[in-house]
Design a protein around this nucleic acid. Structure first.
Length: 227
DNA sequence: TTCGAAGAACCGTTACATCA
DNA sequence: GTGATGTAACGGTTCTTCGA
C-alpha cells in the first residue's frame, strides 16, 4: 500500500530537521498543513524496510505518537473526549468516511486525516465485532431454546412410552381374561365391542396418540412403528 | 480492452496506556 | 509488578478507479 502520510517508523528514520518539521506539524494543529511534504515522503519511502514497528521505550526520539500538552511533551496517545465524541457522532451518521468529510473532520478536530481514517477503521472493526457478538448471543439463545424444547419432547416421549407399556399390559391382562373365548372372530359381536371400547371409548387410542397400534388376532395389539 | 499506478478499505497484529 | 483490556497505529492484501 502506498500512503500519503508518514508513519512513526519513517519519522524515527528522519534527520533532526525533518523530525522538527513534522513535530511542529503534529503539535500545532492550527498551523498543521495536514500533508507531509513530498521530500520527506520520498526520502523515507524509498528506504522503507519491510519489518514490524519498532518499540519506542527509550523515549529519546520524537514519534508521531507524542502529543504536546501545555508546554511539556507527554506520552499520551489517547484522543480527547471531545474528539471522540465528535468522531462518534460522525460515525453514527455514516460508517464510511469519504475523503472530503475526513479532511473536514480532521481540520475540525486538529488531527491528521490519517488519524481520522484510522479511527474510523478501528471503529468499524469494533462495531463489526459487537454485531458478531450480538448475533452470536442471539443464535446461542435460540439454540438453548431448541435444546430445552428437545428435552421437553424427549421427556414427553418417555412418558408416552410408559403409558403405552402400561396400556399394553392392561390389554394383555384383558385378553388373557377372555382367553379361550372367541373374541378374535371378525364376526364376533364381542370383538366389535372390544374394538369400540379401546379405540373410541374409555381408551380413546386415537386421541391418546396410540393410533399407531393395530389389532391382529394372532398377535393381539401390534405397534406399527416399533414402540 | 488492457495494464499499471494510486488510493481506500479491510484484516490481523503490534505497541502502549490504563486499570484491577 | 503483572496480566487483562482497550485502542491508536501499522503492514500487507485486495479492490476500485482512472488515465495512458
Amino acid at each position: 500500500m502506498s500512503s500519503s502520510y508518514t508513519t512513526s517508523d519513517e519519522i524515527l528514520g528522519m534527520d533532526d530537521q525533518n523530525q522538527m518539521l513534522l513535530f511542529s506539524q503534529q503539535f500545532y494543529p492550527d498551523s498543521y498543513n495536514q500533508l507531509i511534504p513530498q521530500e520527506i515522503k520520498l526520502e523515507s519511502s524509498e528506504t522503507k524496510p519491510k519489518r514490524r514497528r519498532r518499540k519506542n521505550k527509550g523515549g529519546d526520539v520524537l514519534s508521531s505518537e507524542d502529543i504536546k500538552v501545555g508546554n511539556s511533551l507527554m506520552k499520551k496517545r489517547k484522543l480527547t473526549d471531545l474528539q471522540v465524541t465528535l468522531l462518534e457522532q460522525n460515525f453514527g451518521d455514516e460508517h464510511k468516511l469519504e475523503s472530503e468529510r475526513k479532511d473536514k473532520l480532521a481540520a475540525e478536530l486538529g488531527l491528521d486525516p490519517r488519524q481520522v481514517a484510522v479511527w474510523f477503521q478501528n471503529r468499524r472493526a469494533r462495531w463489526k465485532n459487537k454485531k458478531l457478538e450480538e448475533e452470536y448471543s442471539k443464535l446461542k439463545s435460540s439454540h438453548d431454546n431448541v435444546i430445552l424444547q428437545k428435552c421437553h419432547l424427549e421427556a414427553e416421549v418417555l412418558q408416552l412410552k410408559e403409558r403405552l407399556s402400561e396400556t399394553e399390559k392392561e390389554l394383555r391382562r384383558v385378553t388373557e381374561q377372555f382367553d379361550g373365548v372367541s373374541i378374535c372372530s371378525p364376526n364376533s359381536s364381542f370383538s366389535v365391542d372390544v374394538e369400540q371400547h379401546y379405540l373410541g371409548g374409555e381408551f380413546n387410542m386415537v386421541e391418546a396418540g396410540y393410533d399407531n397400534l393395530l389389532y391382529i388376532p394372532e398377535n393381539n395389539w401390534v405397534n406399527l412403528y416399533g414402540f
